[in-house]
Design a protein around this nucleic acid. Structure first.
Lengths: 208, 208
DNA sequence: ATGAAAACCTAGTAGTCATTCGGTTTTTGT
DNA sequence: ACAAAAACCGAATGACTACTAGGTTTTCAT
């Protein structure tokens, strides 16, 4: 049997090892960005040689891609799952994301540094961030449009603009928070924004 | 006379040359950040050797400082001058800054990339950005407090929060705009935010 | 237990980087 | 016109970078 068994698959602890590397990659890319962050330092953090690391990720950009993917998986877990989400629910999810972010400065830094770096057209994560913003702003807009249908949105608020603004607000707060954590409460500012676009009479209580 | 004339001052065209270097520095640091942007490339752009450049700026951080200073001078010119500014005037100034920014992507990129990079505590511009945000958010808050006194601010809006949010919004919009210039109108979104915090009955007309 | 692939290493390649040294050319006040 | 400082350059230093070639060790299915 075994038609010329071409591969044997990886060892038992390989997946775990890759995770260690990705996590170290998050640390290093957060502090130094992708371009300045070095594979050598990442390898050092997991007690491995550069060449050893490059056995798992064949080049630097591939490691970056794995880092971004892992981050996406984490943040998607925090958001209420797609279908069940009816407008307002989604915005509450965003507040929860802001709250969670305040416990993981490394991930916040990763996002800020990489998204800014990736505005350069030749950056390996350039298209990733274009797609990501389209997706995030789009989802938020859909939630707000639904709220408008339910009469939960202030009638003079445009769903598209408010969605883009909310995402921009959350991003901008991250930079300010990283620079001065005591003075900035990202979740609180996010709540205030959301409260401000609610139609009169819509219950605040879920934005404790 | 001339008590042992210690220095002779620089040549006639030196100031101009320094400006050329700073402008090239803006270009390079915008695209690659401070850490990855190279003195060699900056020197090349002004047709000069690395060593020649380092005659004008004794090291890389000093060049960065000159770059940031020049940018500050430019953006201060756009804001209505301090004293004369009565609340609302200041916010209109911010809209003008957003409008201006849409004509200078290089400067916008510089701000986004460097402010993110400088969240790292050991970055040479770290303290600069801490101070800058304190100043900008502080000025905006003062303008909004004045507006509140004049009854121009929606009574349920907190001046401090709204100020921080407006600055964050403008920053966040910059990243989105850099990634997708057709889809994002920074000045328009800024206006919408400002309109949304105006007290009822306050005239919109100055936010064309 | 054994053979083969996966995991990992050392050493090297070919490049980059900021900064310094010592010298040459250009400008400029006298 | 001349001397001294400013402006600038070539070359070197030492340290860094991503990535590769070729070899050794570890794991694991048979």
């Amino acid at each position: 049997m075994s038609e010329a068994g071409r591969t044997r698959g990886s060892y038992a602890k390989t997946a775990e090892r890759r995770l260690e590397i990705i996590r170290a990659g998050i640390d290093v890319f957060s502090n130094s960005g992708f371009r300045s962050g070095s594979i050598r330092e990442i390898a050092e953090r997991v007690g491995m040689s550069q060449a050893g690391l490059l056995h798992h990720f064949s080049n630097k950009a591939e490691l970056l891609s794995a880092v971004l993917t892992l981050r996406d998986e984490h943040s998607l877990e925090l958001m209420p799952t797609g279908e069940a989400t009816e407008g307002f629910e989604f915005l509450i999810g965003l507040v929860q994301v802001a709250e969670y972010n305040q416990t993981v400065p490394g991930l916040v830094e990763l996002h800020c540094v990489l998204s800014a770096e990736a505005t350069a057209a030749d950056h390996p994560a350039h298209q990733y961030f274009i797609d990501r913003y389209r997706y995030v702003v789009g989802s938020t807009e859909r939630a707000m449009t639904r709220m408008a249908e339910l009469g939960q949105l202030r009638p003079d608020v445009d769903a598209g603009s408010a969605a883009r603004a909310l995402v921009a607000l959350m991003d901008g707060l991250q930079v300010q928070w990283l620079l001065d954590r005591e003075s900035v409460d990202m979740a609180d500012e996010t709540k205030r924004f959301i409260r401000a676009i609610l139609a009169e009479g819509v219950s605040d209580e879920r934005l404790a």
